[in-house]
Every structure is written in C-alpha cells, then in structure tokens.
Design a protein around this nucleic acid. Structure first.
Lengths: 334, 334
DNA sequence: AGCATAGTAGACAGCGCTGTCAATTTCTAT
DNA sequence: ATAGAAATTGACAGCGCTGTCTACTATGCT
C-alpha cells in the first residue's frame, strides 16, 4: 500500500510531474484545463504532498522555530498566539519546542530546529549555553531573543528590562511609605531573578536593606503557591507591610490567603503583582501590577523575522525595548 | 556559504558517507577509532544533519502530530505536557498545531500533518468535517481522538462523557435542594455544549425545565468573563440559587463577583465549576468542581500511539472512558 | 593450513520533490 | 503572413540522506 506520489498524480492526469507540482504551488502558471485535470486527479487519488521531499528539493522549509521555557504559562500562550497569527498568515509553519527552563534542553532544541533547517529561530530569553550561542550565531539564520534585554544580543532582541520593572514595582511600594517589603517568587528563572535584582536595588537605594523579606519555592507560579508563600510570610515574627509577587497568580493567591486570615488589603498589607494578567483589574480588591507586553513582543518578533527572511539579511543587531507600565490599583491603595 | 553535509564530514574524516551516517544513528556498529574520527569531524565542521533528507530517505519521520483547539487554556497545556513527557522520551518529535476551534482549520491542520508524514495523529475532540474524517480514516496511521467519547471512533478514543459530567454537576445542585440553577459558559465549543446538554437533561429529569437559567458569551473562559456572566445573572429579576460554570475560571470570577456584591457563598448562592483546576481547592471558599483527567488523557494517548506504532497496527478501534470525579467543597455547602 | 563466522566498511540506488533551462505552443504587432 | 514575444509545458539533474546488498577484514575453530 504505497503512498500516492506526485508521479502517480501526473500519470493519472496524463501530464508531467512538474506540471502537477506547479498546479499545487503556482496555479497561475498553468492553463485552466490542465489545472482542472490535475486538481481532479489530486482529489481522486487523495494525494498529499510529501513535505520532506519538497523541503529537500527546494532548500526552503517555510518553518520558523520557536523556543519557550514552558507551555504552562499564560504569558507564553499569549506570546505564541501572536507569533502564530503573524507567521501562519504569512505561510510559515511554527515549530514550538519547550525547553523546560533548562539550558541543556534549550541547546538540544536549537540543534533539533537547525536540523530541521527552520528559516529563523525565535527564542525566549537571553541566557544560553556557550555552544547554543555559537550555534545560533553561526547558524546563518535570523535569531530573535525575546522577553529580556541582552547586553550582547546575538542578532535581534525584543524585550523589556525585568530589573527595571522589579525596581519600579518596589519603588512604588517604597513611595507609599512601606519599609518591610516582601518578595514572593516561584521558580527563580532568569526573568524572576532580574526582578529580584531590581527589588534589591530599589531597597538598597532607599536604605531598606534590613527590611528585605524574600521567599521563594521552586515550583511554577500558581494561585496555590501564592497562598502558601504568603502564609509563610504572615507567620513570620513581624509581618510585611507590602508584598511584591513576581507573578499575578502568586499575587491572587496572596490576596486569598490574606482574606482567609482577615487581613485587610490594602489597609493591613499592600500587594503588587506582575504581568497584569486579565484578572488583575477585576480581582477584589483590584490588583496593582506591572504590565508586560508579551503579545506585542510576539507580533514584533514575528514581523522582524519575516522582514529579515524577506530581505535575506543576517545579523541586523537590533534591540527594541518594549518597556512596561506600572498599573496602580486598589491592592496598593489605588 | 554552503551548509555542511554528510559528505563533507565523510571526506574530512576520510571515511565513506555511510559510515558517518552510522556513527550518528547506530554508533555501536562502528569501530571505536573510526567513531572518534567521525565525531571529531562532526564537531570540527559544525555539522547538523538535514532532517528533511533523513525523513525522505528513511520514510520515517519520528514525528507525532497533535491538534488542539487552543493553546490558551491550562487544560490543553497539561495535556500537552503529558504528551511531551511520553513522546519526547520515546524519541519522537511532537508537532503541535492549533485549530482555533474551527473545523476548517482543523482539516487544514490534518492535511499539513499528513503532508509531514507524521506517524500518528492525536486530536482533541471527536467532531470533524467529513473530509477530515476521511483523511484520518484513510491516512493509514494511528489516530487518537481525545477528551470526549465518540459514538463512532475513527480509531482509538480516550476521554470522558462531557454530558454525564454536566449532568452529574447539575444533579448535585438539585440534590442540595436548589431549583433555580444557572449555567454559565464562554465559548460554546462541543465539550461545553455537551455539558449544557447534561445540564438540560438533569433539569428536565427533575422537572425543573422552568428553572433553567443559561447565559453564555462567545469568548474564552476567564475569571473576568465569569464575573461578567455572574453579574448578568445576579441582575435578573430573580436570582439563581446555584450556579454551574463550565470552567473553574468562570467559577472563580463568579465567586469574586458575589463577594463584591456581598452575596454569601454558599449561604446565598452555591457555585460549582469544572475541571478542578489547581486553585479550586484553595479558593475561598473552596470551589466544588468536576475533576477531569487531562494529564492521564495525554499520557494514555501517547502510550497508545507508541504501542500502535510499535506493533504497526492500524485501527485498534479502542475506546477508553477515563471518567470524572465530583469534588464537593465549601462553595456548594461542602 | 583452511574454512566458517562475525564484525566492520563501502557501493549503489533511490526516497519525492523542485530549480533551471529548453522546447513547444499561442498570441501580438507589423 | 511572419517575426518576435509571451505563455505554457516538459526534461533533466540533484537536494542529502539511508536501506540493502556486497566486500573485506579479523578471529576462532577443526
């Protein structure tokens, strides 16, 4: 039971294989009657072109590789959504690989994508193994690093300063007069680490080094984890006056935990989250947060890739800071 | 600037191309010294095998196609996680395509996957276009339909009865003595529709047809949407006594909305969600829900696919009902 | 010494498609 | 009516790899 090939279709339709190929790829170049005959044959035989053969022959894959650390996070879901919207419409296949927050797996993912001869790689993050970096740099294809700003971009870099954002959130709490400011965090990936750096920076700028309260647990951000981390904080000798969570899910969990314990927000404790997820504005009390622009990151990354492929340029060495926005709501006193 | 090929490596290492190929695929079949020479050459030249060529020559792709309606939903994220865990470890590439809840896009996705000669297709849902169904049935590859139970599976089918689950949730509320029971829903996809059918069934079984309160809005399930739909319900002439949400996100939004309006849960209104997401147990009050087994669905689907590929069997025609569990918590009175 | 066996390396052809260029037909303008 | 351009179709070779088969080497045994 052999699979139907282009040649089968050609002989069935009584034309040359090349004509069949053309009908499928550039129908305008074939006359109406032949096109009909070929299409009929394709349908009749249930022909499905073999992409591997096409890729090999044409040396074009029409595939873009995308590496994200996890699929289990709305942030990346929104980002992927944007990438898909732009790239699929432009006729590209999006190959998503997840690196599970591991640089080793990321390197393997890069190898796999290069082996597939993707025409560009869009990768979340700026920290790679030395070898991975070398592969990307010498891969002779456009590379976009996203979500963070790199001191030394491989090629194109689109993101925001996670450190500045962490600092801004902390400064906001400091400006409100709080001194004992807690930092809640799940997995300490590079982005969270930078936000933590920003927190430390802001605290020390305000001479509040002694009032730092950091708690962290290596599992993915969730409402449940937020409750747990918050509980941990509340059971310490002296409660914090404000809490900065690296993620709105954690913040929502913290809100719940406080309510459960009869702790008023923002009267007793202020809470600020990160990312400004959908529910932040409608939580009760509404949740202050740092808005990140992951949808725009995805769109822009996709567009940059398309134009780089189109222009056949390598190493544009462009860096774009999409910034962030501090959203002040009830949970930090409005 | 040509890409490095197997032949380049071979001549660099002074061996035949076939030997290089073997070193890469079955190193045991090559003697130690040659293997070292070849590996050195690979490293030196930065050789990355061309997968398209390999796939064409070997007629094996080591790729499994997975179709989901959206990536923007934890349910599918967990399912994909499970699929990945099993399949990647078994040496397969997972090709994820999202159909955006459209049967047309699903059909296109199927064509794309068949064109890639994936070795199996795992597809969420049992409703396809006639042509899509035909493609899957005649594609000569294992097919797994998931999440729902099909009256007529194409091949393997792993899921649960969404209707029974919807009915069970509603029955629980009825058993608690409620009569005016509302149903809240976002996008009315096939699964939600079945849950709604179950709701109608349970209501009519209890002679409560007159007390049905259904509200729905065609956007994806979110906490914000839950608040909005709940607000809609609460502003009706007569408030519901209980609310069944097709999704825990909606339910959490409903909880928030009720709290905002000073409506006590479960004293004034009971709420039950669906899926038993992570936060359900730790919400306040804790949220009753119907637990679905999406992780197990993913694992099992992957395992079935592996064994079907291994055994080289087609059309096992197997149906597995993974069931569901009613989780009773505070939001419906414990 | 002579032979069978296993282990190792290579030759060859071909997977199914497309780029390039050549050949043919059709049409346009003089 | 005819040269020349444009539109249409086809021949050929090759993309980079692997399955299959063959050839060679080393080893152990009678």
């Amino acid at each position: 039971m052999r699979r139907v090939t282009l040649d089968d279709v050609a002989s069935f339709a009584g034309v040359s294989p090349i004509t069949v190929s053309r009908v499928l790829r550039k129908p305008d170049a074939v006359s109406e009657p032949l096109r009909r005959r070929v299409n009929a044959a394709v349908k009749e035989l249930g022909y499905v072109p073999n992409i591997a053969a096409s890729r090999l022959a044409s040396a074009r894959t029409h595939a873009i590789g995308v590496i994200v650390p996890t699929l289990y996070n709305v942030i990346f879901a929104e980002y992927l959504l944007a990438l898909h919207e732009v790239l699929v419409d432009a006729g590209f296949q999006v190959v998503v690989v997840n690196s599970r927050y591991s640089e080793i797996e990321e390197e393997n993912a890069i190898k796999a994508l290069l082996g597939q001869r993707v025409e560009a790689i869009i990768i979340a993050g700026i920290h790679h193994t030395a070898h991975a970096r070398q592969l990307l740099a010498h891969g002779n294809l456009p590379v976009v690093e996203t979500f963070e700003l790199s001191p030394d971009p491989i090629d194109i870099n689109i993101g925001m300063s996670q450190e500045s954002a962490g600092r801004a959130a902390t400064r906001h709490l400091i400006a409100r007069g709080f001194r004992r400011i807690a930092f809640l965090c799940g997995n300490l990936d590079h982005r969270s680490q930078s936000r933590l750096d920003g927190y430390h920076l802001a605290m020390s700028e305000a001479d509040l080094k002694n009032f730092e309260l950091v708690t962290q647990q290596p599992s993915h951000s969730s409402i449940a984890l937020g409750s747990a981390l918050c509980a941990d904080m509340l059971e310490r000798e002296r409660m914090p006056e404000a809490i900065f969570c690296t993620d709105d899910n954690l913040a929502l969990g913290a809100l719940q935990e406080c309510r459960k314990r009869g702790i008023g927000i923002p009267n007793d404790i202020s809470v600020i989250g990160f990312h400004d997820l959908e529910f932040a504005a409608c939580a009760s009390p509404s949740l202050s947060s740092i808005a990140s622009r992951r949808y725009e990151t995805g769109r822009l990354a996709a567009e940059k890739v398309l134009s780089a492929i189109h222009a056949n340029t390598r190493h544009s060495r462009e860096q774009i800071d999409l910034g962030f926005e501090v959203k002040l709501r009830k949970s930090t006193g409005g």
